[in-house]
Write a protein that binds this DNA or RNA. Structure first.
Length: 854
RNA sequence: GCGGACGUGGCGAAAUCGGUAGACGCAGCAGACUUAAAAUCUGCCAUCCUCUGGAUAUGCGGGUUCAAGUCCCGCCGUCCGCACCA
């Protein structure tokens, strides 16, 4: 092959992508050799994308990282599973159907085709034969089968729960479709509506899911912590309040039983059965409850919104002193979903209760004191939640908070009015969605037999294709024929369930189906045993809680049902940062939002930016996540056209640590492209050995780079690997011609191959056949570092006086402390600074530094 | 509100165990090559000062230590998540 002076990225990208496909380079070997493979397995998985239409830079970054790891694992002798698929159900497809009059399925499949083409242009080492889309009946039919298995195992329940209801569009809204309490399309005030819905009993696994976090030491601490807080295990006291006047009371839960003598009111949720019962005869209370339901359903809205209450006029007895009566309020900040939906309010030591008490002028009693102030009357607007001793609490006075908690619980249990309990913040997983574009829930409602599962031999329950999106609401619900079926038990008239499954269900087991996808069952346990758990999972931190918790739950549930051996799906997790870009805008005057411009409408210089169209300056805004509304997006296709896949991949991996945000810049991608060209020139110098000699210093640097780049990739420190490759390229360029230098150029091809695979193949192919062991560098082995060359025989040792650097010296490595100290004290500069005095103390860290305390 | 993370030059960063702060890259400046441009190459590049040296510097204020970006305490700032978005 004749060598071009410049690397032609576009032609090379296409050529090598075709070559890998022809050679089937990235297929695994499990189907051919299930148990006989000696190779260790490596299952590398990036979170599969939603087919929104086009890939964005965040995808490029995510898949570039996974790809480097997959290619590196292949080079280091692993049997690699690196698949790709599509999280293909979800709301955007229905929105497109409504806005553009297309079918969600057609829209989704078009998007998949477009995005598959874009991903292939990145040159990813993916086994495309395993591609799957969750909207394919082959996939969701197996999901339905698993759902029935979960049902049989008692892990599926039905219960009533609230949804956001748009009374104009007659449809259920997602939280994100509720803007300032109104439906995003209709603008109507959103109501809460109670529906009977399907739930997965994730709370049965709360303890296990919490305990299991302890074993996930290759997960980021922050993700484990977030999950721990999400599961939210709390120990506390559950007890009954007796209504004054004899009527039955209600249960409350508290994590602060120690503050019981500080109670000044009892509060129940607007959704509490007692509140609903009272509202039946009290129109004002009914109106108050309705008002609460018009507020948002999200935790944030509940907790930041104004605290509102309604005095029911009822009172309850204080459990420790029946003569003490507390008023019962209905309040908007008590959640029906947590604890018992009722609390006692202790304003002095809970901020929300204090805000509420101040607003409605309820008493505020101090029961915890951290110093001299012990008066019962509590002043100020800041609740005291710190440590201290009990005061104004009769038999508890003088105890610590923990002692008082224990004392109250033991007394409550002894006297029989309450008991110590564990309460979880985690709620059961509501999986019902009143939408078309999702997995149909395989159940049938029969008047005679109730709700019965669809028999497995009738799966998949396939979505009907003839649906109409011009009328709001769920098209499955009003479909003329689809939902009308015979009851599988009594053969009488019955209707299908028209709710579909939350798309998080689809993503809770796709990693199993990638490993094994038989047509007659969800997966083959023997194949799962070989591949699972996923060795490295990579994706956005936005999935830190829900997706990852649901997938963990699903895996444990399948394990409990005896279908798989593992309990945790992802051995190692990595959460990558976002791709960001500066924004360009102009103010449009009062009351109007600024006008944003896309990066290609802009001329950027060192000190500012101008609009190309009129040459006048625009404001350069902060570097933020790429988003369509701020127009700071860069289209990957345009970048691939201009610079090729390798420059784009290289830039994605450079500079920023992968867990942090990466600021995209035109200068940055150009720099990456220049480096691609620079390597191309260097790769041409593998044969120019003029005087065959050896270059020991360069050999050291080469072998240190082999070891360093390898360990950096393994630890996903791509930015560090990039820096080491830059440093090695600098060293090679500066070195005089030698056999070592030619060898280094040759080795460098394989060092960059995981990151810049097309350039590496092109350079590899240009080598004489005797210099390469494999036809494709994709099949080549990672170079071996010579341990003898990894350590230098000389070290530079710092000499400090009183902790400040005063001199350095170069000594042989491995000298003992005395020799190093003597050498340091013998330095003329040190002798001069000491002025003949004897140092008080000398600390020697061998091979590193000497600190002299004068 | 609750929970989480982050903060080091003009910018992205590095410093793996408490041991020489700023590797590597981007931008910038100066020069070489060229008729010229592009490309390429060489050098400089934290701040200040009394400049062969020294002082100050890792958001701010304390502390521990011979030694702190790293450990401890208290602040400040920024970003992210909050259960029907995926």
């Amino acid at each position: 092959m004749t060598r071009e002076p410049r690397f032609g990225a576009l032609a090379a990208d296409a050529r090598w992508q075709a070559a890998w496909e022809a050679a089937n380079s990235f297929a695994t070997t499990d189907s051919k050799n299930l148990d006989g493979a000696d190779k260790p397995k490596a299952y590398i998985l990036e979170m599969f994308p939603y087919p929104s239409g086009r890939i964005h830079m965040g995808h490029v970054r995510n898949y570039a990282m996974g790809d480097v790891l997959a290619r590196f694992k292949k080079m280091t002798g692993h049997d690699v599973l690196h698949p790709m698929g599509w999280d293909a159900f979800g709301m955007p497809a229905e929105n497109a159907a409504m806005e553009k009059g297309v079918h969600p399925g057609g829209w989704t499949r078009d998007n998949i085709a477009a995005m598959r083409g874009q991903l292939k242009r990145l040159g990813l080492a993916i086994d495309w034969s395993r591609e799957l889309a969750t909207c394919d009946p082959d996939y969701y039919g197996q999901e339905q089968a698993l759902f029935l298995d979960l049902f049989a195992a008692g892990l599926v329940t039905r219960k009533e729960s609230y949804v956001n209801w748009d009374p104009v569009d007659m449809t259920v809204l997602a939280n994100e479709q509720v803007i300032d309490g109104r439906g995003w399309r209709s603008g109507a005030l959103v109501e809460k509506k109670k529906l009977s819905q399907w739930f997965l009993r994730i709370t049965d696994f709360a303890d296990e899911l919490l305990e299991g976090l302890g074993g996930l030491d290759s997960w980021p601490d922050k993700v484990r912590l977030m999950q721990e807080n999400w599961i939210g295990k709390s120990q506390g006291l559950e007890f009954s309040f007796k209504l004054v006047g004899g009527a039955a009371g209600f249960d409350v839960f508290t994590t602060r039983p120690d503050t019981l003598y500080g109670a000044s009111f009892a509060a129940i949720s607007p959704d509490h059965p007692l509140a609903e019962r009272l509202a039946a005869d009290a129109p004002e209370l009914a109106e108050f409850i309705a008002e609460c339901r018009r507020q948002g359903t999200s935790a944030e809205q509940l907790e930041t919104g104004e605290k509102l209450g309604f005095d029911t006029g009822l009172t309850v007895e204080h459990p420790l002193d029946p003569a003490l009566h507390l008023p019962v309020w209905v309040v908007n900040y008590v959640l029906m979903d947590y604890g018992t939906g009722a609390i006692f309010g202790c304003p002095a030591h809970d901020q929300r209760d204090l805000d509420f008490a101040r607003k409605y002028e309820l008493p505020v009693h101090r029961v915890i004191a951290d110093g001299d102030e012990t008066a019962q009357h509590f002043t100020g607007d800041e609740a005291y939640t710190g440590p201290g001793k009990l005061v104004n609490s009769r038999f508890l006075d003088g105890m610590t908070i923990d002692e008082a908690k224990a004392a109250i619980v033991s007394r409550a249990e002894h006297e029989g009015w309450g008991k110590g309990t564990t309460v979880w913040r985690l709620r059961d997983w509501g999986v019902s969605r009143q939408r078309y574009w999702g997995t149909p829930i395989p159940f049938i409602h029969c008047h005679a037999c109730g709700t019965v599962p669809v028999p497995k031999d009738q799966l998949p329950v396939v979505l009907p294709l003839d649906v109409d999106f011009s009328i709001p609401g769920n098209p499955l619900d009003r479909h003329p024929t689809w939902k009308h079926v015979r009851c599988p038990v009594c053969s009488g008239d019955a209707v299908r369930e028209t709710d579909t499954l939350d798309t998080f269900v689809d993503s809770s087991w796709y990693f199993l189906r990638f490993a094994s996808a038989p047509s007659d069952r969800p997966f083959d346990p023997d194949v799962i045993r070989r591949w699972l758990p996923v060795d490295q999972y990579i994706g956005g931190v936005e999935h830190a809680i829900l997706h990852l918790l649901y997938a963990r739950f699903w895996t444990r549930a399948l394990n409990k049902m005896g279908m798989i051996d593992i309990v945790e799906p992802f051995a190692s997790l990595f959460t990558q940062g976002m791709v960001t870009h500066e924004t360009y805008s102009r103010e449009q005057g009062e009351g109007l939002p600024p006008l944003y411009f896309t990066p290609d409408e802009i001329e950027r210089s060192a000190d500012g930016a101008t609009l190309t169209a009129d040459g006048a300056p625009v404001q350069v805004g902060r570097v933020i996540k790429m988003s369509k509304s701020k127009k700071n997006v860069v289209d990957p296709d345009a970048i691939l056209d201009q610079y090729g896949a390798d420059a784009a991949r290289w830039f994605m991996l450079s500079d920023s640590p992968p867990e942090r945000d990466l600021p995209w810049s035109e200068a940055g991608i150009e720099g990456a492209w220049r480096f691609v060209q620079r390597l191309w020139r260097l790769f041409g110098e593998t044969e120019n050995v003029s005087d065959g000699g050896e270059d020991k210093a360069l050999a050291r640097k080469l072998h240190q780079a082999i070891a360093g780049v390898g360990s950096d990739i393994e630890a996903l420190g791509f930015n560090k690997a990039v820096a080491k490759i830059h440093a090695l390229a600098n060293d090679i360029e500066k070195a005089k011609p030698s056999a070592t230098r030619a060898e280094a150029c040759l080795t460098l091809i394989r060092l960059v191959a995981p990151m810049m695979p097309h350039l590496a193949e092109e350079a590899w192919a240009a080598l004489p056949a005797q210099l390469r062991a494999t036809t494709l560098v994709a099949d080549a082995a990672w170079p071996t570092a010579d341990p003898a060359l990894l350590v230098d025989d000389e070290v530079t040792i710092a000499i400090q006086m009183a902790g400040k650097l005063r001199d350095t010296m170069t000594l042989a490595k491995g000298l003992d402390k005395d020799a190093i100290e003597a050498a340091a004290l013998a330095r003329p500069r040190i002798a001069e600074l000491l002025g003949g005095a004897t140092p008080k103390k000398v600390i020697v860290v061998p091979d590193r530094l000497v600190n002299i305390v004068p």
